[in-house]
Amino acid sequence: MTMSAAITGVGMSDIGRKTGRPAMIHLAEAARRALDCAGLTRDDIDGICTYPGKADNSPGMSPLGTGEVRNALGLKTRWHSAVPDGPAQMAPIMVAAMAVATGQARHVLCFRALTESSSQTATRRASIPGAGRARLGGWYSYLVPANAMSASNWAGWMATRYCHEFGMTREHLGMVATGQRAFAQHNPSAVMQAPLTMEDYLGARMISSPLGLFDCDVPIDGACVVIVSAADAARDCARTPLTIEALGSALGSQETWDQRADLTTMGAHDACADLWSRTDMKPADVDVLALYDGFSIFVPYWLEAFGFCGHGEAKDFIADGHIGPGGRFPVNTGGGQLSGGRLHGFGLLHEACTQLWGQGGGRQVADAKTAVCGMGGGFIAGAMLLRRD
C-alpha cells in the first residue's frame, strides 16, 4: 500500500574529518541545500524530526536536538519528534511519513548531525558504550565485561558465524569495500577517494576478526537533511516527488546483538519481510540499493534480507559482480559509509534520492526509477522502498 508521503528534498553539508566546525553550522548548510532542492523556504516547513535526539552517550554522536535546530533555523512548526527507540536510523523518516499522511504536518524536515571525528579525545572515544561514564546498564553490561567494547566486536561475531556457515571469505567482504571505493571516486563528497585494491584491503590492520580496517565505516563531521512531504503538497515542489511505496519496521527477536536465534540473520530480515508484505513490487523491480554498511558484513545480510539472493548466497552474488559499478543491483553508489563517511544511514538515503533524480554524475545508474534503503545493524532495522513516477 503506497503511503501518502514523498521525499521532496535532500541536502548534505560539506562533510569531512576533524573539520572543527560546529554541528549547527553543518546542519544549517544541509538544511539550506535541502530546501533549495525541494524549492521550499523555511516558512513551508511545519514539522521537524530527528534520530535519536540530543544525546551525550558517545562523543559527537548526536549533538543537536529538535528544539535548538528549530530555533536556529527560525522554523514555526506544529509537529516535532525525536525517536531514540525505533526502527534504527530510519525511524524519523518513517515517523515523518506518518505525520504528513495523517495531516499533522505538510513538510517535515528530518535531520541527522554528527561531529564524531572532531569530538573524540584520548579518554572519550566515539562508538564505545558508556565512554567516559562510571557505570554501564542494559545489554551493554553483558557485552563489555566480555571485552566486546564496540559494535566492531559484535559485528565480528556475526561475521565469524556467517563465514563458518556459508564459506564467505575476507575476499568477498573485500569486494564490498573495493566496489564502494570505486563508486566513491566519482562522488566529490566522499571522504575516502583514493583507489583501494584488494591487496590494500587484505593488508590493512585487523580490527575485530574477521573485520579489518576497511570493513569499518568512517567517522566524520557532517549533517544530512531529508524533507518528507504530504503527497498533495509534494506536487508543488521543485523536483519530481519520490513516493514512499512501502516501509518495513518489524522486530522479531530479542533486543540484543548476541541472542538472536540465527546469527546469520539480523533485524533487517524482519523489516524487509514486513516491507514486501505491503507492496506488489518485487526485488527484481529495484534499480538502486542503499544498504547500511556500518561494517562490510552488513551488506550481504541486507542483500539476503531484501531478497536479492537466497540465504547464504550473498558471497556468490557479490562475486558475480552484481553490486559494484556496472552491476545489475548497484549498492551504495556514493561510496556508502565505508568510503563516503558515516552519517548513520542518512547519507545512504541522500544518495538513493540523488540517483532517482538523475543527479549522480559519473556514478549515475541509467534510468533509475526505484530504490530500496535499509538502515540498521544487529537486532533493529528500518526498510524503505522509493519510486519515481
Rank of each mutant, 00 (worst) to 15 (best):
L40A: 07
K282A: 08
C163G: 11
V100S: 12
C353V: 15
A234S: 14
C163F: 10
Q185A: 13
A230Y: 14
I244F: 05
L64G: 02
R133Q: 01
T370G: 08
R161M: 07
L385I: 02
A223L: 01
G360P: 07
I380R: 08
S62N: 10
Y292R: 01
T19G: 09
M175D: 08
E116Y: 00
T41Q: 12
T8R: 07
G60Q: 00
D14H: 11
L251P: 12
Q104L: 15
A177L: 01
A34C: 10
W139I: 06
V176F: 01
P188Y: 09
T197C: 01
V191Q: 01
G20Q: 14
A190L: 10
D258R: 10
Q355P: 12
D320V: 11
N153D: 07
T41D: 08
G294H: 02
A182E: 15
Q337L: 00
A72W: 15
R70A: 02
I220P: 02
C237I: 11
K282S: 09
G103A: 01
V95D: 10
S127F: 07
G376H: 03
D285F: 06
Y140W: 12
V228K: 05
L173R: 14
A290V: 00
V95F: 08
S13M: 03
I93V: 08
R363G: 00
V372Y: 11
L173V: 12
F329W: 15
M168H: 07
C49K: 03
A366E: 08
G358K: 10
A366Y: 03
P283E: 04
L109N: 05
R278V: 14
H322N: 06
G130L: 13
G361A: 06
L35H: 06
K369F: 03
I207F: 11
S13V: 07
L73F: 15
V191P: 00
A38Q: 09
S229R: 03
S127Q: 05
V10K: 00
Q89Y: 06
A246S: 13
